Every structure is written in structure tokens, then in C-alpha cells.
Simulated assay, not measured.
Amino acid sequence: MSLETHQSSPTAPAPDELDVRNLPHGGRHDIIFANLDQLRPGGTFVILNDHDPRPLLYQTEALWPGRYEWNYLEAGPLLWRVPITRAG
């Protein structure tokens, strides 16, 4: 009798999500920047927000041109989900 071994292909873990919707507006960018600072090249986390975080994108690009890549997984009207990846 032989046993067959099936190996599942490894999949990348889902990126961490940072839900800033319940945080005070004045402190959101600082918390997001702290998370950005901890990202290693190729690392990603997803921001969950109650409005378009485009001003954060502009601020990030001004401070660290080309360091982070943004996408929109969901763009409102009640929830924005935006993965941010540190360029490698």
C-alpha cells in the first residue's frame, strides 16, 4: 500500500490591515507613518479609512518620493481599503 503525499503550494499571508476609522483625525497620519516606517522592502499593509486617503498619498510622496506604492482595493463611499507597499 502506498501513501500519496500532497503538498499545497505556499501562499503569501494576507497583509495586515490598519483600521484608522475610529482614530482621531489629528493622529491618523502619525500612526500610519509609524507603520510605514516599520515596513521592510516588499512589505505591505492595508489602510481602512472612512474617506479617500489621497492627501496622505501626496504627503507620503513629498516626504519619501517613490518609496511606497499605493493601490485602491475599495474606493468608498463608506470604506476605502488601500494597500501600501514599500518599494524594494
Rank of each mutant, 00 (worst) to 15 (best):
M1R: 04
L18S: 05
A34L: 14
G27A: 08
G26Y: 03
E61H: 00
I84M: 03
R86E: 00
L63I: 06
G88E: 11
L79I: 05
A87R: 11
L56N: 01
P65A: 15
E17P: 11
P24H: 13
P77T: 08
H25G: 02
R28T: 03
E61V: 01
P10A: 00
I84V: 00
T60R: 05
I31R: 00
R21V: 13
L63M: 12
Y72F: 05
A62W: 15
W70R: 04
Y58P: 02
A75D: 12
M1A: 09
F45V: 15
G27Y: 07
P10T: 02
A34D: 08
L63N: 01
H6S: 05
N71F: 11
W80S: 09
G43R: 11
R67W: 00
A34R: 05
I32R: 00
E61W: 02
L3Y: 13
A62T: 07
R67V: 02
A62S: 09
Y68S: 08
H51W: 10
N49T: 01
A62P: 02
F33D: 07
E69L: 04
Q38V: 06
S2A: 12
H6I: 08
N71L: 00
T5N: 05
F45Y: 13
P10R: 03
N49C: 14
G27R: 11
W80K: 04
I31V: 03
M1D: 04
P55L: 14
L39K: 10
D16W: 12
P41I: 06
L79A: 10
T85W: 03
N49K: 11
L23P: 10
P53R: 07
R67E: 03
V20T: 05
F33P: 00
L78I: 09
V20R: 02
F33N: 02
E4W: 06
E74Y: 06
T5C: 03
Y72Q: 08
E61Y: 08
S2E: 07
H25P: 09
P65N: 11
L78R: 15
A75N: 12
R54M: 06
T60K: 02
E61A: 03
N35W: 02
P53G: 05
G27Q: 15
L3N: 03
A14E: 14
G76Y: 13
V46W: 10
L73P: 05
D37I: 03
A87S: 12
R40I: 15
V46M: 15
L3P: 00
H6Q: 06
E17Y: 12
L18D: 01
T60Y: 04
D37V: 07
